[in-house]
Design a protein around this nucleic acid. Structure first.
Lengths: 142, 142
DNA sequence: TCATGTATTTAGAATAAGTCTAAAGTAAGA
DNA sequence: TCTTACTTTAGACTTATTCTAAATACATGA
């Protein structure tokens, strides 16, 4: 599967993988391309069904999980935990937040600067039921 | 198992369940008591092993899950998602946030007012590697 | 007290997400 | 071409959770 640069603003998945030290195999490239182009925060299963038809050969479940873990470790994608029991993936690795629409289940990205003043309104477009800040870091013991 | 009010500041689990319309069976009371008294944000499995010895009879896994779901639906506890594949529970239902110590895996509560100015330091006690705001609500379609 | 109905608990089967394993495939270099 | 190292694969396995159907407990009315 050769690259056919259909859209200009999306960086080549191949380049991205190379720049992160990940060998751009066809499977990895197609999975990365899918994640870069979607805004749907898919699960591994959703990646599998979306990408399976784009590849000439069948794609195994194990490869999807292997690739997602490889891309995650290489910093190409991030995990998003919104619901119990499922992990979603996001190729937007800029510092941003997520807004879960409880009606539709859709997850949309919220740029970091939008929430600078937490507790204040996000804008008319969003009706916030609640939010949670999840910190990762270290506590000084003592 | 009769109540023996060993600590004053913790509200009686029995009262709490009754006030939320949950029938206070021995299993539910012991599970609620455990969650109210701990700060460890335990998983279902951790609840089971911690509580099993406190009950005169054996406690089944299904009852732990049933009870946790009942308590969650009644608003007595909340789910906390910090790692893929596991759900943790928190009986602190005030609006607060969580800080995951990546060294120890411990999750500590951060009161809401601490993070009013997101992006600024949480205080010397915490070394923040990153944080994520998780919103729940609705997007205006359009 | 006894029967009855309703809710709860239980053990274990079933499901779902993800990982592991061992074999087969692929590609590059000697 | 042969070797070596890595990747992909199918399917077995694990783990967390839910489901199911039977057993138990408990309250109420006769």
């Amino acid at each position: 599967m050769t690259a056919h640069n259909h859209t200009e603003q999306i960086p080549s998945a191949e380049q991205l993988l190379l720049s992160r030290g990940v060998k751009p195999t066809p499977q990895r490239v197609v999975i990365a391309e899918y994640l870069l182009q979607t805004e749907s925060h898919p699960t591994a299963d959703e990646v599998l069904s979306a990408v399976a038809q784009a590849l000439p050969v069948a794609l195994s479940r194990a490869t999807v999980y292997n690739t997602l873990n490889t891309l995650k470790e290489a910093g190409v994608i991030k995990e998003v935990l919104t619901e119990p029991g499922r992990v979603r993936y996001d190729a937007n690795i800029t510092h941003h937040h997520h807004f879960v629409d409880v009606k539709t289940g859709k997850i949309v990205d919220i740029p970091s600067d939008k929430v600078e003043a937490i507790g204040k309104l996000l804008g008319d477009q969003y009706k916030v039921h609640g939010f949670q800040v999840l910190f990762y870091g270290e506590v000084e013991s003592g």
